[in-house]
Simulated assay, not measured.
Amino acid sequence: MSISAADVKKLRDQTGAGMMDCKKALADSNGDMDAAIELLRKKGQKVSEKRADREANQGVIVTKISDDRKKAVALELNCETDFVAKNEEFVEYANGFAQVAFDEEPADLDSLLQGKIKDLTVSDMLKDLVGKIGEKIDISRFEIMKADGDGEIFDYIHPGNQLCVLVAFEGPVQNSEVAKDVAMQVAAMNPISVNRDEVDASTLDKEKEIAKQQLLNEGKPEEIAEKAAMGKLRRFFEENVLLEQKFVKDGTQSVQEYLKHSGTPLVKSFVRIQLGGN
Rank of each mutant, 00 (worst) to 15 (best):
D197R: 07
E152L: 01
E80A: 04
S202H: 07
D148E: 14
K10L: 13
A229R: 05
D124I: 11
T252C: 01
V91L: 08
L26V: 00
L163C: 08
L243F: 11
V182Q: 03
R141S: 13
S2C: 01
F247G: 11
E135P: 13
K24H: 02
M19D: 01
Q213G: 09
K46Q: 14
E238V: 03
I137K: 14
N78T: 13
C22D: 06
Q162S: 08
D28P: 00
L166C: 06
E49N: 11
E170T: 12
R69A: 08
A6M: 10
Y258K: 13
L216R: 13
E89V: 08
A147L: 03
L242S: 01
D13K: 08
I144L: 14
M1C: 07
P221W: 10
H158Q: 05
V122W: 11
K71V: 11
G96Y: 07
E207I: 09
G18D: 02
D7M: 13
K42S: 13
E55S: 08
I144E: 09
Q174I: 02
K146H: 11
A74L: 14
V267C: 01
P159Q: 05
N175S: 11
S140M: 10
V199E: 06
D138S: 15
R234V: 06
K70V: 02
A201T: 07
M33D: 03
V100F: 07
T203Y: 04
R196V: 10
L39C: 00
E92H: 13
V167I: 08
I210N: 06
I37Y: 05
C79A: 06
V173Y: 04
D68A: 02
K206L: 14
N240V: 05
Q14G: 04
G251Y: 05
N87C: 03
I133H: 12
Q99I: 01
L120C: 05
Q45H: 13
H158V: 01
M33W: 01
E105P: 00
V122K: 11
E244F: 04
A5N: 14
A94T: 12
G59I: 03
G115Q: 09
A56M: 03
V47N: 14
Q114P: 01
L113W: 05
K246D: 15
D119H: 09
C164Y: 02
K249M: 09
V241P: 00
K24M: 02
K227R: 15
E238T: 08
Q14C: 00
D67W: 01
A183W: 05
L259V: 08
A98F: 10
D108N: 15
N190Q: 15
T252W: 04
L77T: 12
A25Q: 03
F102A: 04
A17G: 04
I133M: 12
C22Y: 05
L163R: 10
F247T: 13
K180S: 13
L75E: 06
V73F: 06
T203M: 11
A179C: 11
I65P: 01
K118Q: 12
E239G: 02
P106N: 08
M19P: 02
L163D: 04
A107F: 00
F154V: 05
Q114I: 00
K9C: 03
D110N: 14
K260T: 14
K64A: 07
E238G: 15
E223M: 10
V122L: 08
P106C: 03
Y258N: 06
E170G: 00
T203S: 07
I273Q: 09
S123G: 10
